[in-house]
Structures are given as C-alpha cells and as structure tokens.
Design a protein around this nucleic acid. Structure first.
Length: 822
DNA sequence: CAGGTTGGTGTATAGACAGCATGTC
DNA sequence: CTATACACCAACCTG
C-alpha cells in the first residue's frame, strides 16, 4: 500500500511520506489502515520497537485533524515528549500545529488549545484534566505510546485512569494504543473497544542469541565465532567483534546493558581498551571536545569519569547523570562518535538510541523487597534487545545475552529468546494508586456517589481483567475511609446511595497533583506550627493521649478525626506510644520553622523517593536527629520502638542533602557526602521545590497558620531553587546570576539587586572575573540604566576576594569554609 | 625486606512523573 | 536466602 493512496489525510501528506522514503507501508501499518485507523477507528498496535508504530499514530492523528479534530499523544517520559514533538513538527507545513506540555516544559507559551497535536506525559494529562483544561473536550483522537506501561505499579494506574477519563468525557474518541509485543494485547484491545493489530514484523532483521564459550548461537540457527581467551572479558570481545565487522564502511556500535550504576561505570571504563585504539584522529579530536562539554555540565566525579571514558570512545548512561550528560551521550552515540555505551535500563525505555549490537550482560538484578537477585522481566529484556539494528545504517541487528556456562545458555534461550513477554496486568487495585485517583475522580466531577465511582472504575483495564469483583470495591472503600477521615472528601450516607464530594482542601490537593498521603503529612506538619495550637494545644501536639499523633484543633470531633487519620496512615504498626519516648521536644511553644524542618517534612512524604541509608548512616543521622530535634514539624518516632524511625532517618538524609544545597555546598561535595550523582541532586531538589510550592498553597488553607510561616516556606523553597543562603536570594533572582556569581558579588560587597544598579562597575566586573559580556548582561538584567562596561577595568581586589572564597569552598573542607559565609 | 599475590570479609545494588513562571558558570 | 563487583585488609609468597 502506498502512502499517497490513502484517503482522509491532509493534502500532500501521502506524497510527503513517499518523499521521505516511505514508498510502501510496512505490513503492520497496512494492517492498521485496513483496521480503520484513518477512519477514526480505535486500535491497539502491539508490534516491536522501530517497526513503524509512530507512523500508525501519525496516520490516526492527521486524519482526525483533517476531519476537524484535535489529537493528544501521550508519552511515558518527558524526554520522549520533545523527541515526538520534533518528529511531528514536520507536518507543520501542512498546517498542522504541535505543542508540548510536561511538568517542566510548556511549548512556546502558546495556548495548547490552539494546537492540533499535543504531546504530553500521562501525569500531565491527568493534571490537565484535574485542572479543567478546556480543550480536553475537543479531543477526537488520543494516542497512548508504550501502553504496556499500565503494568507499572507506580505509574500504570495513572495512565489507565487517564485513558478511562478521556474516553468518558468524549465517547466518540478514537483511541490508538501503541504497545510492545506483550502476552495479552487482546485484553488491552478489549478494554479500549479497539481493533487489534499484532505482529512480530520488523523492518530490520533482528537476530537474538546467546554467547557462551567461543561463539554466539542465534535463534535462527546461525552461529558466529567470537572467541574469548582465558581471562579475557566476554563483553569486551563482543564489542570488539562488532567494531571490527564493517558494514556500510564502518564498524558497528554496541549497547551493553548491566544491572547497576557502578557496573555501568566500570564496564565503560574497561571498554575504553576496546574502543580507544580503534578511533581515528578526527574522532579523537571531536571526542575531546565532547569530553570538555561533559566536564562543563557538572564538577562531580561522575562527570569527570564520564568525560574520561568518552575521550576513549566509550560511555556510561544511568539516572545519576545530569540530563545534559545523558543527552550528550545519546546524541554522540547516535552520531556514531561514541562506539559503545554501558547502560542501566534507562536506555532501554528512553529515547531512541539504536546500536548494531545489543549485549545483555546482566539478566538478574538486585531486588531489595525480595532480598536477592531477581531475573529481569521478559518484556524488559525484549525491549533491550529491540534496540539492536539502526535503521538505514545496519543491514541487521544483533542482540546477545551472555552466559558463563552451558546450563545458563539453555536457561537464557528458554527464558528470554524463545519466550513470549508476560501479560500486562493492571495494578490499579492498590491503596496508594486508588488513594490519589479516587480523590481526583470525585474532585473533577467524574463521580458524585460511591456507586458512580465504582461504575467509573468499571471502565478501567483492571475491571476488564479481574475475576475478583469485590476487590476493587473493597479497596475503594478503604481509600474512601482514609480520604474522609483526613477531610478530603465528604460522604453523605442518606438513603440507599452514598453521596461523595470533595472538600475545599480535597479539591486543592487534587489540583496540586499531590498524593493525598503527602498532603496529609504536610498538613499535619503545618498544623504543629499553627498559632491556635501553640499555647493551649501544645501538650496535645506532642503528647497525644492515644499515641496517635498531633491534634491541632481543640474540638472533640476534630480530635477524633485527626487521631483516626494518623493511626490510619501508619496502620502497618503497633499502636504503642511512639512519641512519648524520643519524640517529645522540650519546646513549650510551636517550634520556629526552619528550612531543615520543612525539607524533612516534604522528604518524608510518599512523593519523595527515599535515599538509601548506608552503613554508618543510621548512627550519623540518629545523632543529627537528636541535635536538631526542635526543628522537626511533627512528632519524631521512637528510635527503639518504632519501625517508622528508619524511614524518618532516610528522610533526614534527604533533608540534609537539600539543606546542603541551600547552604551553597558544592555539587561535588554533596555527591560525595551522600553517595549520589549530579542527576540525583537535581532530582531531589526539583521534587522538594515542587512539594514546597504545594506546601505553600496548603499553608494558606490551614487554620491558624500565620503569614510568617508561609513566608518561611516560600523562602526555604526559593533557597532550593537558587541553591543559596538567605542573604543571596535577592541577587540570585537576577537573571544570569546563579549561586556562584551571587556569592562572588556578595563577597565583593554587592549584596542586592539595588547594589548592582549603583555599584562601582569596576568592582562588579572584578567580582565576575573580568567577564565583560556576562557582567553587562547582568547589570542590564538588574535594571541598571547604563550597563555598558566600555573602558572599565576590573577591580582586582574584588576578584581576589571572590576567588579566595570560591577556592576555599571547592578544595578544602566544605563545612569549615562555609563558616566564612555564615 | 619491599612489593606483589591471594583470599577472606564487608558492603552495596534501576528508574523518574507532577506545579509554576522563566533562565547557570 | 538465591549474585556479583569491588574496596579493603591481612596473611602469605617471592626476588
């Protein structure tokens, strides 16, 4: 079938596709057309990666737009959103407009309502629905990319509920779901009332095999000799073999999947021995430039190690990298400059980074809950293997699993090569998932009664799949109790049916996109500093009669409610009286609100991913816990009796990381001190910023919380945003002034935006190390009337003072030098 | 005796979405 | 609990 023979697309699109080189639709695409994608028919396409799924989606969206509609493309990752946007923008010449909306990025600042195609993450779509984005009603086509992720226990329910809501709002909606090949695509199709196109067809041949001893055995029966000398590294030999096999005039790149960050880093280091000697002079030059760019992203060891490897044509890739690191590596790998990437699963599901050869080195991964090594899911391994074969570059792709003995070889064939991926199973019927979605469903008006709620939930994949009719209802009731007790919903049990409505605070929580449990924790913490609670309520705050937690209000009813909530939140433990032992601060009045207290408050919510407590950390943070006891908002669990204590310490570790960041401790010191990468630091800071912004909003709704507390919350948040101490907040707010420049200016005596407008230009220039253009921009951004620095000589003393400060901070003991700042 | 080898022990372990209003060194 | 890599350290061997 030729693209130009398709009807229903905007004029010229078919021809444009042919001009792109799509002379003929791929078989799965043709099957999709036959199933009616261009006629508004819903469809589930379960086909391998890189077999033209995106074009199926484009055909659906473009034909829908041609009929006067509007399309939404849901992606699982933010990084994919921009990738897809760029891809879809080639239709702009046919009058089709594209917009993106993700948590950290909205396109162009233009109204999404005017866009024909909107690309967004599932959470963002969920949030937009909750906040009543007007264009949701106008959608005629929704595409869900990687829909098999409904299986994910954390994020799957969001996708599932979001699709159910979109379909509820708009009954005629065309739903196109793109999935990897999974065990039960038919069930997904059933759920979405969609046609099913299922296929193993790939445009580039993929051979999957297992290497053991001196050869790879492939699934098609072929065999390739790759000898491994005794003591030599199996992975290295396979990477070398791919590089030495020229197709298209060049050796093939490899992608190595390993099971931990550390393994990714050490693998990349080892593989430099393979890639380094095979580089051309020109490649070396370009790689050196790239390495410099990488070093420029961050000052951490991680950054340095990555740059060192990259200079030799090898790289690692995992979530500890800063996002700039990641894209630099991905781009250079796609450009064939980096020959080999050792990666954790980040790369299996992320942006498109194909390689000639994929090597799955580790097929088991440590699972803390399980307490040992668990084999990877078949689907996950298939996704990794699917990265083999670069369209247009390789005549074939090879995926190789590594076995160290004959038994393992057989196991790998059985478990992964011949096996079908697991069936997808909805994870909706779990409390954490339902807690947030039940509230949102009620708050955004999708259900006004318990029955209405259950009937809405009947449109989910879970309902389609389950045999256990009562389970969803049972969990829903548990969750409704929780939401009721915490004051997020009101129930009206009059008559036969039970009415449901979100309270004011319930609406706020839903719109803020908070997990209700996070909101409860934050509210609980804020109430401990509410005025009403200080004096009369102080005793009640810290020594609850029933050991259940703070009781902010004097009223008997409120007491009952709050103790109920607290008990419920921590339902997994013994009652006891945790607060009495360790958690009873001396403070008679409400504690002063400190940044650490606030950072701890948001760090202990379920919306923050916990930092791992290493050996020795327990002791260290227990000590900190006592030293800074008065700063915590809420009762401290008992060190000896309370299983929550461990989590409390983990949150404290996170809070300390945030505090360090806000105290201008250098990135590399933080990385070292907490055993994290630059990407983790950014991630933690972002999350905390987001939660503190939510806390600020919530604080306004808590009775008794004064304006001063709100200001402290805002200040703690802004200090995270800029990564500075209090005295630099004003300066750091000036564009082009970050934590480093602000500190240098401050040391030179320029302490505020106003100072910038009036200060001696020579001093400014000196503090900024003589960078004229930068200094001019900063002066301009500070609102100075005459920012020009023509003929100004930098004041050396300003520069010297600033440099001394920065150096001490960088090299010496961070804590000691920070004393100078305070 | 310096310097290297071997072997036992201890430790640690993947990923990443959301709000809001604009920009690091 | 199930694995594996690595850092660390001590006992041991060798030129």
């Amino acid at each position: 079938m030729e693209p130009s023979s398709l009807s229903g697309l905007p004029a010229g699109v078919g021809e444009a596709l042919e001009a792109e080189g799509v002379a003929e639709l791929y078989p799965p695409q043709e099957a999709a057309v036959e199933a009616g994608v261009v006629d508004g028919e819903s469809l589930v396409a379960a086909v391998p990666t890189a077999s033209g799924k995106t074009l199926i989606a484009e055909l659906a969206m473009l034909s829908s737009i041609e009929r006067g509609g509007k399309a939404l493309y849901i992606v699982p990752l933010r990084a994919l959103a921009s990738e897809k946007k760029a891809e879809f923008e080639r239709w702009e010449e046919f009058g089709v407009t594209v917009g993106v909306s993700t948590g950290n990025y909205d396109s162009d600042g233009e109204w999404l309502a005017s866009r024909d195609i909107i690309v967004a993450t599932s959470e963002k779509v969920d949030s937009l629905i909750r906040n009543g984005a007007p264009w949701i009603d106008d959608l005629t086509c929704v595409v869900s990319d990687e829909v098999h992720l409904v299986d994910d226990s954390h994020r799957g329910p969001t996708l599932e509920v979001t699709l159910a809501k979109l379909r509820r709002v708009n009954p005629g909606l065309q739903t196109v779901a793109l999935s990897a090949t999974v065990g039960n695509a038919d069930v997904i199709a059933d759920w979405l009332d969609a046609e099913l196109v299922e296929s193993d067809w790939r445009p580039i041949e993929l051979r999957t095999g297992v290497h053991f001893g001196n050869a790879i055995e492939f699934d098609d029966g072929s065999r390739r000799e790759v000898p491994v000398e005794r003591g030599a590294d199996q992975t290295a030999e396979l990477v070398a073999d791919a590089l030495d096999t020229e197709e298209d005039g060049q050796g093939g790149s490899s992608l190595v999947f390993v099971n931990s960050r550390r393994n990714a880093e050490s693998s990349a280091r080892k593989l430099t021995d393979v890639t380094g000697p095979r580089l051309t002079g020109d490649e070396r030059d370009r790689l050196r430039e790239l390495a410099e760019e990488i070093r420029g992203v961050s000052d951490t060891d991680t950054s340095e190690d990555l740059a060192d490897a990259v200079e030799e044509g090898s790289a690692f890739h995992h979530a500890g990298l800063a996002s700039e690191h990641r894209s630099l590596v991905e781009d250079a790998f796609r450009d064939r400059l980096i020959k080999c990437v050792s990666a954790t699963p980040t790369l299996a599901a992320g942006v498109n980074t194909p390689a000639r050869r994929v090597i799955v080195r580790d097929w088991r991964r440590y699972d803390g809950e399980f307490g040992g090594m668990q084999p990877l899911d078949v689907l996950e391994v298939h996704q990794m293997c699917g990265r083999a074969g670069r369209p247009g570059l390789d005549p074939y792709g090879e995926a190789v699993l590594l076995a160290s003995d004959a038994d393992t070889r057989e196991e790998l064939f059985d478990r992964y090569v011949w096996a079908e991926a697991e069936p997808v199973r909805s994870k909706l019927a779990a409390e954490p998932a339902l807690r947030t979605h039940v509230l949102a469903t009620v708050a955004s008006g999708f259900a006004a009664t318990r029955e209405g709620l259950l009937s809405f939930l009947d449109n989910t994949l879970y309902a389609t799949q389950t045999d256990d009719e009562g389970r969803l209802a049972a969990v829903t009731d548990t969750v409704l109790d929780y939401l009721d007790v915490n004051g997020f919903v009101e129930r009206d049990r009059d008559g036969g049916s039970e009415g449901l409505a979100a309270t004011g605070i319930g609406h706020t929580v839903s719109r803020l996109y908070l997990d209700p449990m996070s909101a409860a924790e934050i509210l609980d913490g804020l109430r401990t500093v509410a005025d009403g609670a200080d004096d009369e309520g102080a005793a009640g705050d810290f020594v609850p009669a029933d050991g259940a937690g703070p009781a902010p209000d004097a009223g008997a009813e409120a007491d009952a409610d709050d103790s109920g909530f607290t008990t419920y939140t921590r339902a997994d433990e013994e009652g006891g009286d945790p607060a009495a032992e360790a958690g009873e601060p001396d403070a008679a009045a409400a504690p002063a609100v400190t940044p650490l207290g606030l950072y701890h408050l948001v760090s202990r919510t379920p919306d923050t991913y916990e930092l791992y407590l290493k050996s020795g950390d327990r002791e260290e943070y227990t000590e900190v816990c006592y030293e800074r006891e008065t700063e915590f908002l809420g009762d401290v669990p008992s060190e000896y009796e309370d299983v929550r204590f461990e989590d409390w310490l983990a949150a404290l570790k996170t809070a300390r990381l945030l505090e360090d960041w806000a105290n201008e401790v250098d990135e590399d010191r933080i990385a070292e001190r907490y055993g994290v990468g630059p990407g983790d630091i950014r991630g933690k800071v972002d999350t905390a910023e987001w939660l503190l912004r939510a806390a600020e909003t919530l604080a306004r709704d808590v009775e008794g919380v004064d304006g001063d507390t709100v200001v402290r919350v805002r200040e703690a948040r802004k200090r995270l945003e800029y990564g500075v101490r209090e005295e630099l907040l004003d300066l750091a707010g000036v564009r082009n002034v970050g934590r480093k420049r602000a500190r240098r200016l401050y040391e030179a005596g320029i302490e505020s935006r106003a100072d910038l407008r009036e200060a001696d230009k020579a001093v400014v220039l000196g503090a900024l190390r003589g960078r004229e253009r930068t200094a001019e921009r900063i002066l301009e951004n500070a609102g100075r009337e005459d920012p020009s620095l023509d003929g100004v000589d930098p004041d050396r003393s300003a520069s010297a003072a600033a440099t001394a400060g920065a150096d001490a901070d960088g090299d010496g003991d961070g804590q000691a030098s920070l004393g100078d700042f305070g």
